[in-house]
Nucleic acid binder design. Structure first.
Lengths: 225, 225
DNA sequence: GAGTGGTCTAGACCACAGC
DNA sequence: CTGTGGTCTAGACCACTCG
């Protein structure tokens, strides 16, 4: 019910309607509206601020970043920086793993982005990111020289694409020679491979990403508390 | 508020009080009770069944197992079996990693269990499990010849210890020679190392576990949907 | 049919933010 | 001071389960 409003015109971060107004608009009681809003808050769609109002959640908050950023340093705080970033466009979605994971039709076009991440002068991660071109028009031009670390914030601000959920499939793999040139590790050393599919409001895949990460001084954290 | 009742006498799986009765007992209205119960349901403490009543959640349900079992096969369904299991008791908690993770005092005693898991005739996982002996009296005797696959179900039924939450820290490591004798893989091959701390109702650590897992035909799944 | 949870209503009062 | 969300109340009616 409330999802309809989100699809409409509102941008993330905007104030949402008052609970009282919503009750009137939908012709239901306040308690019912509160329950519906509660559910959307639980799904990180809305954020409440007592005395101020209800707002549409954004990705720039540290809380949201924590939901999507799972590799953390052992001990000291991380100093993340993006090292290298290259963008390419492909028209071959169809049979590839990326196309399947993004649930694209055979000839839909896909944007590919490669980047490495550094952590305190050490190159620790190599990522390949795939996006359905349909959702990200003029991607290369809009990216320009910017090298955003938080991609989801960038997607949201530039394209209105919000990541709500994800699946991650994690494996241990041996570094290839190519890996060892991009990540500070010897060929054959153990790397974490994280394959992620990210989904939007409506459950459509909006990003597919494969990351390889060196984990001698960091780890992937999965917490349920 | 309702936690108090759980600490009391009720066993898991038991029927819980009626919402109406709870409202009367606590001197609050039905709506308030419903909200409180909602929260406990969200935390997997209670389960509602319309028309039957509210029950204390158990670990034997497949849903609960899915919350705690993250390594899944690629494609076909898994046939899990426990291969080997050894129990040992130690009186040295203190300075060890296990002791720290279980937040034990220096001289508290710790139970150690080692086991391997097989999946379709292939040995794929080696686990070391550490338990605070205080919570698991007569562990070795009570285990007897049983080799439970679902340890959490066993903890719950035999000791009344319930796992509610966890942290998992995941790394990629190279198999040692010892690993390769327990897991079907060559020395040096990449393994997933999963370090888990499990917590009870009150947030106390009740189990610490280190697993090494071969991931050529399976992966660790982390899903937020 | 009696008892349970599931959903909803139309109010009340409080805590907090911002002018 | 006004408007917002936060919490609570005391009912109502429905859907489901089980004897």
């Amino acid at each position: 019910m409330l999802q309809r409003i989100l699809y409409g015109k509102l941008r993330r971060g905007d104030a949402f309607d008052t609970e009282g107004r919503l009750a009137a608009q939908f012709g239901v009681s306040l308690g019912t509206v509160r329950k519906a809003v509660d559910e959307l808050v639980a799904q990180n769609v809305l954020v409440r601020h007592q005395g101020r109002g209800t707002f549409i959640a954004t990705h720039d908050s540290t809380a949201a970043a924590r939901l999507h950023f799972h590799v953390v340093g052992r001990g000291r705080t991380p100093g993340v920086a993006v090292f290298r970033q290259a963008v390419e466009r492909r028209n071959q979605a169809g049979e590839s793993k990326q196309g399947k994971n993004l649930k694209l039709s055979l000839r839909a076009s896909v944007i590919e982005m490669r980047r490495t991440k550094s952590w305190a002068d050490e190159s620790i991660m190599f990522e390949r990111v795939y996006l359905p071109a349909r959702l990200f028009p003029n991607f290369k031009r809009r990216l320009g020289q910017a090298r955003p670390v938080l991609l989801y914030e960038f997607y949201e601000q530039e394209f209105g694409v919000s990541v709500m959920n994800f699946d991650e499939r994690i494996r241990a793999v041996a570094a290839t020679k190519a890996d060892s040139e991009l990540i500070d590790c010897a060929p054959g050393c153990a790397l974490l491979e994280i394959e992620r599919t990210a989904y939007g409001y409506d459950g459509t895949p909006v990003e597919f990403r494969i990351s390889r990460c060196e984990t001698r001084r960091r780890y992937y954290l999965h917490s349920r508390r």
